[in-house]
Design a protein around this nucleic acid. Structure first.
Length: 375
RNA sequence: GCUGGAAUCGUCUAGUGGCAAUGACAAGAGACUGUAAAUCUCUCGCCUUCGGGCUUCGUAGGUUCGAGUCCUACUUCCAGCA
């Protein structure tokens, strides 16, 4: 069983440490999205330098390229990518939601590769096998995200997620047993809670996932902060408190991180920070700015005061503006360093404020400043 | 000097009788939440009550219901010949 120590609680919020075979994660923590075994525009050394504790890769992408056998041959995701720290993999379930032309059946999901059109299929069993081959410390159960917000559709997706969870757990047991016999390192499974915006479905899903006794929980299918607090209260009051919870995909907006942590989530991942960085939308304590805007051409101040990242320590807004306008690769590198540092550091500060009892003040001060001036 | 060719939005460019006029770049702005995203969308002559109105394709005339497109002259540039 995955070891998770909680050192302090505040309502549903908690401060803890997840002990993985590749190292500890001090929670709450923001996990970098390394979909194709890389955080876009950043080296793993840059990720370490900006304070990242863990990364999350995607099974779907790694099945397509380079293939999960190759990653196993390399010694696993951490070794292959030279990250060496704690790693997560997403199951590929999200691609049911995000890709066109997927065929979903009880057995699994049929895709056409977006690269060469080749047909292939992911089932709960094959997702587990692929994740074991990739060798991340923490795996997500293969789940079904509904595309529709319709109650009936959401219920069907949730029930399928539960049926698939049974199969994931069974397959995972087989793989875990085989690994133990071969003296291979442990890998752990999170069940994924679905149910959309319907709290009765969320409650049902949380109960079902908890009953399967996984190592932790992913909370999936969340897309906006609206209603998230109530949903998390429902779900995290049901989930066993001694196991870690990962809020899947949320964290582009700082409010997601505050609400997520306040209502009992331990880790987060989100592609937003690095994607927005590549597109010139950069975090500051006063809200996001678009560094490509003409008004920054002559702005020789740092991107953000009181930021200790490599970008803010060394470069000005005018320089970043110039790099973006001339489409230099370094624009995306520096911007990604800053945005990723911003969210990682914000969650670290949330952790610190929970430890010293100042969370409520920190949240109030941060959010009113961040959203007050720009929204 | 002669003979050809060319002049269109900041730049390059499409356009050979119905056109405020193509495309690209540049410029201005917006979006982005378990990444088919170093992507996508919008604006880009002036005004607008968003119906439309007005002024545009080197300059000046002309032909025509109608001209960026045809004719004449001029200006500038390019090429060849002197």
């Amino acid at each position: 069983m995955l070891k998770f120590d909680i050192e302090k609680r505040d309502g549903l919020a908690r401060v803890g440490t997840i002990h993985t075979p590749h190292g500890d994660i001090k929670t709450p923590a923001f996990v970098g999205a390394a979909t194709r075994a890389t955080v876009k525009a950043l080296t793993m050394q840059e990720m370490r330098d900006l304070g990242s504790q863990a990364i999350l890769a995607n099974t779907y992408h790694l099945i397509l390229r380079p293939g999960t056998d190759l990653i196993k041959e390399a010694g696993g995701l951490a070794e292959f990518s030279s990250w060496h720290g704690p790693t997560f993999t997403d199951s590929g379930g999200f691609q049911i939601f995000s890709l066109p032309n997927v065929k979903i059946s009880e057995n699994g999901v049929k895709f056409k590769s977006h690269i060469d059109g080749a047909n292939f299929e992911i089932t709960p069993e094959s997702s587990m096998q692929a994740q074991w081959a990739i060798g991340a410390d923490i795996h997500m159960a293969f789940d079904h995200l509904a595309k529709s917000e319709n109650y009936a559709d959401m219920k069907v997706a949730m029930e399928r997620t539960h049926a698939w969870l049974d199969r994931c757990v069974t397959e995972n047991e087989k793989l875990a047993t085989a690994a133990r016999e071969n003296n291979e390192v442990e890998q752990y499974l999170y069940a994924v809670v679905q149910g959309g915006t319907f709290n009765d479905l969320r409650a049902e899903s949380a109960k079902y996932c908890a009953s399967k006794n996984p190592d932790g929980f992913g909370i999936g299918g969340v897309f906006t902060a609206d209603g998230m607090a109530e949903m998390l209260q429902t779900v995290n009051s049901i989930l066993p408190e001694n196991k870690p919870r990962h809020l899947l995909g949320m964290g582009q907006e700082p409010i997601d991180l505050f609400v997520g942590a306040e209502f009992g989530c331990d880790t987060f991942d989100c592609v937003g920070p690095t994607r927005m960085a590549r597109n010139g939308s950069l975090y500051t304590l006063d809200g996001r700015i678009n560094i490509k805007n003409a008004k920054y051409k002559h702005d020789f101040t740092p991107l953000m005061q009181d930021c200790n990242c490599e970008c803010c320590n060394n470069y000005t807004r005018a320089y970043l503006h110039h790099l973006f306008k001339t489409d230099e690769i370094t624009a995306k590198v520096l911007a990604s360093i800053h945005n990723e540092h911003f969210v990682v550091h914000t969650v670290d500060q949330i952790r610190a404020s929970l430890l010293d009892g100042t969370f409520a003040d920190y949240k109030q001060e941060f959010l009113s400043r961040y959203y007050g001036k720009t929204l």
